[in-house]
């Protein structure tokens, strides 16, 4: 019995947090309410209309040259080759190009913004006790620009790439720049914040030593922060590159040439067979680049 009492005493003494319980309760109620609301707002699952739609969808999924005929691998392969060479592969190349340009632009912008956003770097006297009292105006200027940079990064992170691309396409037309900018800006927000946090979490010894030797902010950033943080920065970069590939596919649905453009075009012509083949191309492209970026990440980690 005494073990039981001890266990009960231990249980009573466990750390409890009212905040955590309230959050858990709120999360569970939100989930239940949302599921019920969606269920109530939808017709019954697989209603007659949906069954009819589904039947048509799967009938159309059969490659068009095979309609009403027995399956013939040769015909199917010729059809797939034609779709791939006329649309699939050029669109996959365009998707890849948009993603690469956007990810590199995002990394460059992120690096630029990370400097004022890093709290350890962007102060009147980084890493060293101030020799004299810095003026109030100087401290305010650093504080204000730093906060502004962090707020700007948060704003960029919050912008949905699709909404941004919608605006850019409406303004300048469906050109690749619209997709590149729409992907680069939100990702610059993500990378800028991660870069700034990496810079803040570096051990202070080396920058302090350089600072004591008279180095300025930029010298420290280039000579210490960048090389020390580079592996971490590259890891983040590759994660975002994966996101950019998925994003570049989808932004095509707004009329910019990429895989998404071909999805919309196939859908508009009610060519379900081509739509599914092109979605499969997008999936394979994503999986290949995931594998490539995983390999690059592990190479960087080992280096």
């Amino acid at each position: 019995m005494s073990t039981d009492t001890a266990i009960r005493a231990l249980r009573r003494a466990r750390p409890r947090s009212r905040f955590l319980r309230a959050t858990l309760l709120a999360a569970l109620s939100l989930a239940a309410w949302s599921l019920l609301r969606v269920a109530a707002g939808s017709e019954e699952f697989l209603s007659a209309r949906q069954r009819a739609n589904l039947g048509r969808f799967f009938a159309d999924a059969r490659p068009a040259p095979l309609a009403g005929r027995d399956f013939d691998a040769g015909v199917a392969a010729r059809w797939a080759g034609e779709v791939l060479s006329s649309r699939g592969l050029p669109a996959a190349a365009a998707t890849l190009g948009i993603a690469a340009a956007a990810a590199v632009l995002a990394a460059l912008l992120g690096l630029l913004f990370a400097l004022p956003a890093a709290r350890t770097l962007w102060t009147p006297s980084p890493w060293l006790a101030p020799t004299g009292p810095p003026g109030r105006a100087v401290r305010f200027a650093f504080g204000a620009t730093g906060s502004l940079a962090r707020a700007l990064l948060a704003l960029l992170r919050g912008l949905p790439d699709y909404a941004l691309a919608f605006l850019l396409v409406a303004a300048v037309g469906p050109v690749p720049w619209a997709a590149v900018l729409a992907l680069a800006l939100p990702n610059a927000g993500v990378l800028g914040r991660l870069f700034a946090e990496t810079a803040e979490n570096l051990p202070p010894a080396a920058p302090a030593a350089l600072r004591a030797g008279g180095a300025g902010r930029m010298a420290i950033a280039v000579a210490v922060l960048l090389p020390a943080a580079l592996p971490r920065l590259l890891l983040y970069f590759f994660y975002r590159f994966d996101t950019c590939v998925r994003g570049a596919t989808v932004l095509g649905m707004l009329g910019i040439f990429s895989l998404g453009y071909c999805f919309e075009e196939a859908r508009a012509r009610h060519r379900t067979d081509e739509l599914l083949l092109l979605v499969a191309v997008a999936a394979v492209l994503t999986l290949l680049l995931d594998a490539l970026s995983a390999a690059a990440r592990s190479a960087v980690r080992r280096s």
């Binding site: 690469a100 340009a101 590199v104 303004a171 300048v172 037309g173 720049w177």
Partner: peptide
Amino acid sequence: LLAGGLAAAAGLGLFSGGGGRPGGLGAI
């Protein structure tokens, strides 16, 4: 990465009149 980004940008024509309708900049 830098070379890839530059090559992709050049391939998409971002450096040569890929900017679409310049009048749209007013809307932005």
